[in-house]
C-alpha cells in the first residue's frame, strides 16, 4: 500500500534533519504500528504521509504512485484520527458529522458507528457538552466517515474507559479484516500487542527495528521457563525459584524431578513484553 524509501525531512527553521532516511512499507490490510518516544519523528512521519508536510527527500509511493503526484483527491481515500478533540464545539455531534460527510464521495453509515460507540443518543447534543471520552469516540467516527482505504490513527484509545476502548479496538480490527490498512501511532503497548500486525520502532529520526510483535518478543525475550515452587509442606507463598532452557526442557531431568517432588506455585515462559522491548530498543522509559 505504502512504500517509504529513504525519506529525510528537515523543518525549515531546523539545522538538523528530523527524519533521517527511513525506509519501510505498509501492506494492504495490515495494522502497522509506529512506535517510539516523543520527539523521535513519529508525528512528522505521519504528517508527511497525510500530506501535511511537503518538501521531504526520498520517495513515498501510495498504491504504486508517488505521493507527491496526488492532489486533494488523496483525502478521499484516507481517514485521519487525532488524539485531541477536533470538532466544532457549538455544533451538535450530528451536525459535525454531516458537515464533514458532505465533503466526501464515499459515505459510511455513521449512525451505526455512533450507536456502536454509544454516542448515538447524544447526537443532538452540542459537542461542548460531551465528555472527553465521547469526543474521542466522535473523533473515530469522523476519521472513518468516508470509508477510507487507509486509516491514520494517533493514540485512538487514550482517554477511553476499558469497555469503550475494547469496542474501538474491535472496530479497528474489523476494519482491518475488511481490507482496510491502518497506521497506528501509540504509546499504549497493550493496544500494540492486541492490534498491530507489524511494528516499527523509531529512534532519533530513524527506524531502529521493524517486525511482528511476536517475532520481536522471541528475538528480545529469553527462551526460558521460570518456575516458582515450595516444599510440599510449606504454604502457598513461593520461596524458591528455578529457571530452565525452553529448548531442552523436554529432556531436562532436573525439571521433571522438580515437577514431581515440589509444590509448583507459578510457571511462566520468560517471554518479554513490548514494554520491555520499547525500553530496550529506544533506550527511553516509556512514560518518561
Amino acid at each position: 500500500m505504502f512504500q517509504v524509501k529513504d525519506v529525510t525531512y528537515r523543518y525549515p527553521k531546523n539545522r538538523e534533519d528530523t527524519i533521517k532516511g527511513i525506509t519501510f512499507d505498509i501492506r494492504q490490510g495490515e495494522i502497522f504500528g509506529l512506535l517510539g518516544p516523543s520527539g523521535v519523528g513519529k508525528s512528522t512521519t505521519q504528517k508527511i504521509m497525510v500530506k501535511l508536510l511537503s518538501g521531504y527527500q526520498g520517495e513515498i509511493y501510495y498504491r504504486g504512485k508517488e505521493l507527491k503526484g496526488y492532489d486533494k483527491e488523496y483525502y478521499q481515500e484516507i481517514g485521519v484520527g487525532f488524539e485531541v478533540p477536533v470538532h466544532f464545539s457549538k455544533l451538535t455531534a450530528e451536525e459535525n458529522i454531516n458537515f464533514f460527510r458532505k465533503l466526501y464521495r464515499n459515505q459510511a453509515n455513521t449512525d451505526a458507528m455512533m450507536k456502536r460507540l454509544g454516542i448515538f443518543d447524544a447526537r443532538n447534543k452540542k459537542v461542548d457538552q460531551f465528555s472527553k471520552g465521547m469526543k474521542i469516540r466522535l473523533n473515530f467516527v469522523r476519521a472513518v466517515l468516508n470509508n477510507p482505504a487507509v486509516l491514520f490513527l494517533d493514540e485512538p484509545t487514550i482517554g477511553l474507559d476499558p469497555s469503550n476502548a475494547r469496542i474501538l479496538k474491535t472496530m479497528i480490527k474489523e476494519y482491518r479484516d475488511y481490507g482496510g490498512t491502518v497506521l497506528l501511532s501509540t504509546h499504549l503497548m497493550n493496544d500494540v500487542d492486541e492490534l498491530c500486525d507489524r511494528v516499527a520502532f523509531m529512534v532519533d529520526g530513524q527506524i531502529a527495528e521493524i517486525d511482528t510483535p511476536q517475532n520481536l518478543k522471541l528475538k528480545h525475550g529469553e527462551k526460558k521457563v521460570e518456575v516458582e515452587y515450595n516444599e510440599h509442606d510449606a504454604g502457598d507463598r513461593p520461596s524458591k525459584r528455578a529457571s530452565f532452557e525452553l529448548e531442552t526442557i523436554n529432556r531436562n531431568e532436573e525439571f521433571f524431578k522438580l515437577m514431581r517432588t515440589k509444590k509448583i506455585i507459578t510457571m511462566h515462559s520468560k517471554e518479554t513484553t513490548l514494554d520491555d522491548i520499547f525500553i530496550k530498543i529506544t533506550g527511553v522509559e516509556k512514560h518518561a
Binding site: E73, Q76, F82, P85, V86, L103, Y104
Partner: peptide, 14 residues
C-alpha cells in the same frame, strides 16, 4: 482553538 482546523486540513477541500 477547537482543533477543527486540524481536521479540515486533511479533508478533500481546496
Amino acid at each position: 482553538q477547537e482543533g477543527s482546523l486540524h481536521t479540515l486540513l486533511v479533508t478533500p477541500i481546496n
